[in-house]
């Protein structure tokens, strides 16, 4: 019986829907990616310019900002 009907037509009849794992993971992935990508680029600039980490710090903050912006645009209502 379980294979016979598609629950999409009648949501809420078959118990609670599964937790939306996909969305949560996407949000976390955006935050980490933002920090890693722009932090990494900042770190490379640090190496190139010779500073001790100021660009990596700025990059990480900017990247997190970008990640939050992406979460709002892609996942927000």
């Amino acid at each position: 019986m379980a294979g016979q009907k598609l629950p999409n037509e009648s949501p809420g009849d078959d118990g609670p829907p599964p937790p939306d794992t996909g969305m949560g993971m996407t949000a976390v992935a955006y935050l980490f990616s933002g920090m890693l990508v722009w932090g990494g680029i900042g770190w490379l600039i640090d190496h190139w310019v010779g500073t001790k980490g100021i660009f990596a710090g700025i990059g990480a903050v900017v990247g997190i900002g970008g990640g939050v912006y992406l979460i709002v645009r892609r996942l927000g209502a």
């Binding site: 990616s33 933002g34 990247g63 990640g67």
Partner: peptide, 9 residues
């Protein structure tokens, strides 16, 4: 700013 983040993630 955003495209590298999208690509990476």
């Amino acid at each position: 700013l955003l495209i590298p983040i999208e690509f990476f993630s």
